[in-house]
Design a binder for these strands. Structure first.
Lengths: 257, 257
DNA sequence: CGTACAGTTGAGGAGATTCAATCATCGTGG
DNA sequence: CCACGATGATTGAATCTCCTCAACTGTACG
């Protein structure tokens, strides 16, 4: 059971709170004045640690909270009746998961850690309450939800119109951008997910993902070594997507407005 | 210019307000007490009429309002740099458009009437303001945005995993459900959009849409006569989608929670 | 009544999938 | 510490679905 896995890893604070968090300029705190940040900290449960494979929440279980990702990486997915998995998103630090289940009774997907990960819990009833008192917070949250819609739309567009190469280029560039935003290298990073998850997410067979990556390598666009990716020709990848405006951001998840 | 088309059709009230609107149980009013409904009416501009081809708003123009669809039908779409159209959604009475642009500076897509249509305008700054005073309204709007995310996710899943037949079956069933919700026939209706828009939306060539529809007809699932659709075997269509839970609702847009 | 436009139908081709086999990598236990 | 199994990743060959191109038919509207 997932719930066991969650409780197995103790709840302890990595840091004292949002005001000291290195991600505060990417995450929710960006929406509130510094003198209101303690009200935010009051409702947010800090830094739960998770190991790879641990569930943050499970599809169909009662919805209570969204989660802000502090470190690590998370994938969300749904299971069909036949138990087939469908990956719906990858999330990196500073991004928020569970937005698609807000004000639903149950989570519409499961979330699982792809590596050692820590998250902050945002109980939504208390957050809604706080939002009515801090209009800028409400405004920000509307924006988060809205941009999540837009990003999901762009994913749909990517899936409906673009080839395998374009889809994978798009994902690589999205990851690159998101690493860059955190002041990490935009050209050299490690994929947090296996090929199978990439394929599942992008509507491609694992084999196709593999083939495209080696093709990119042969073209001198990237250098692949397992999950280690080095982008040699950023512009070259971008050219592949020139068709669809903004699809570079298609997988970038909530976090900035 | 689209703005000309908008002003060309005069702004006049079809009905006095939300409290008399036949869609009040599908639309925003469902979220507020009857004694608060006048506060809602105060900020909502009623019943602007539009002809086929008229724009409700245009991509990249400044975002101000969302719109509730009162009658008719609307499609939303984006244009790529090369001017290629990408249909992002179809909307029917009781549903709300513009949610993907909330708290953005500009609309992220254009919205155009597919037939004679009337809409109610919801200026978002005033709506946000009202939301802080009516928590149930804020809660409802969070829910609207959230379910829009979910529906967009389900569309992504549909596009990434399903065949042409499954996609089209899904759209037909979605329309059927949405007509049913408005107490119209769920088995006999008129498609508000041309085949090209269906194909564009579902990531299929027009020819494929046509072929699948005739195939469905030959299989006795439906009866097609141009845009006139009669579903002869509702269960049969549903069987085609048994794989993906919920994708029947994938195209159903915001309106109920 | 003819000109657009929307929709249908057919033939051929391309991209991605599936099936199958091989290779690499990582964590674990002997 | 190395061998081993398991999982992840790669590569090849055959197949299939859907797209493209093309021609044709039907329909709406001036």
């Amino acid at each position: 059971m997932a719930s066991n896995q969650i409780t197995r890893t103790a709840n302890f604070s990595l840091q004292r709170g949002c005001h000291e968090c290195s991600l505060s300029k990417l995450c929710i705190p960006i929406a509130v004045e510094s003198d209101q940040i303690e009200q935010l900290e009051e409702i947010i449960k800090q830094g739960r640690m998770l190991s790879r494979g641990d569930y943050i929440f499970e599809q169909h279980s009662p919805f209570k909270s969204c989660f802000a990702l502090r470190s690590g990486a998370i994938k969300t997915f749904t299971l069909s009746e036949e138990g087939e998995e469908q990956v719906t998103g990858f999330y990196l630090p500073g991004e928020i998961i569970g937005l698609d289940s807000v004000s639903m009774d149950n989570y519409s997907c499961s979330a699982v850690a792809l590596e050692r990960t820590s998250v902050c819990e945002i109980p939504l009833d208390r957050f809604e309450d706080l939002s009515t008192r801090i209009p800028s917070l409400q405004h920000h949250f509307f924006g988060l939800l809205s941009s999540e819609i837009q990003q999901s739309r762009q994913l749909s567009m990517l899936l409906s119109k673009n080839t395998a190469e374009e889809r994978i280029a798009s994902l690589l560039l999205s990851l690159s951008n998101r690493f860059k935003r955190r002041r990490l290298s935009e050209t050299h990073f490690k994929l947090p997910m296996p090929r199978s998850d990439i394929g599942n997410y992008l509507g491609l067979a694992v084999e196709t993902v593999s083939r495209v990556l080696t093709r990119f390598q042969n073209q001198g666009l990237i250098k692949v070594q397992g999950r280690d990716i080095e982008i040699l020709d950023l512009a070259g990848l971008q050219v592949l997507l020139k068709h669809d405006t903004g699809c570079i951001e298609a997988h970038a998840k909530a976090g900035t407005s």
